[in-house]
């Protein structure tokens, strides 16, 4: 008998319900476990793909971080406009500053969920070719939980940005771009290396481990798939960024 994926999931769920259901990890244990014992924790997440708590936590935290650094971002925007020779009336400048803050907060609230949807979609696409079994919900939960390092990244960036002057807004880095001159913020090399962020790499590794737990496959294969896609994105983004900044 041919079973659909949904049937298989339901059957598996039925099988699970037939066995004595052991309580999973608590929210705190998952948070802790993602960082310290990711393989085991993602097995738990795959079995019980709950994500709303950590999703709200991350989205709200991102919004708070954006709100905290918004004065610096506004000041940095104002300095950039001044250096580019653009003179604005005060009311227009005030409106621009407000828009910068609102856009920053909205981006922090909206972009992460979209990114998790994309990651889950890409993993679902991978499952179509690699005969992996897993629901979109499981993959989405893995994507949300694997971005816990981004939460840490937000904390680190917020602290560092608060410690620096507004003109050094772009200087704060947790990527390999740290090893480039601080004055270089638009070269291809800078844009390329800035994607090799400690927290992004960490998140990708967690995503591969989580997907491996869902698909019951080796995380290495999924890792190669994810890193290949990510590298294509990095090179494209760096190339386009450099092109539109007029450097090439």
């Amino acid at each position: 008998m041919n079973l659909t994926e949904q049937d298989r999931v339901e059957k598996r769920d039925e099988g699970d319900t037939q066995e004595p259901l052991r309580p999973g990890l608590s929210f705190g244990a998952r948070m802790w476990g993602v960082l310290t014992a990711p393989r085991m924790t993602f097995q738990d997440i795959a079995q019980r793909p709950t994500f709303w708590g950590v999703l709200l936590l991350q989205v709200l935290a991102g919004g708070v971080f954006a709100w905290i650094i918004s004065p610096k971002l506004q000041e940095f925007t104002r300095l950039t406009l001044e250096q580019s020779g653009q003179v604005m009336p005060p009311d227009l400048m005030q409106m621009t500053m407000t828009m910068v803050m609102v856009q920053g907060i909205l981006a922090a609230l909206i972009i992460p969920p979209l990114l998790w949807l994309l990651q889950a979609g890409l993993l679902k696409l991978y499952a179509q070719f690699a005969l992996g079994e897993g629901t979109f919900r499981q993959l989405f939960a893995v994507a949300v939980w694997s971005s816990i390092p981004s939460l840490l990244s937000g904390i680190v960036h917020t602290i560092l940005i608060q410690m620096t002057e507004a003109k050094d807004f772009l200087t704060v880095q947790t990527s390999l771009a740290l090893f480039l001159p601080a004055s270089d913020t638009i070269s291809f090399l800078y844009l390329f290396l800035s994607q090799f962020d400690f927290f992004i790499i960490w998140g990708l590794v967690l995503l591969a481990l989580g997907a491996g737990a869902v698909f019951r496959q080796r995380a290495t294969r999924i890792g190669v798939y994810l890193f290949t896609l990510w590298l294509i994105y990095v090179v494209t983004a760096a190339g386009l960024g450099t092109y539109f900044s007029g450097k090439i």
Partner: peptide, 26 residues
């Protein structure tokens, strides 16, 4: 995998799953 997970009702930071030395190191 199930055997590696903490048993139902067990505290999350005890046993084989959460060994303190390994955690502290990480």
């Amino acid at each position: 995998q199930s055997e590696n997970l903490p048993k139902a009702g067990s505290p999350p930071f005890k046993g084989q799953f959460f060994s303190w030395p390994k955690h502290l190191l990480i």
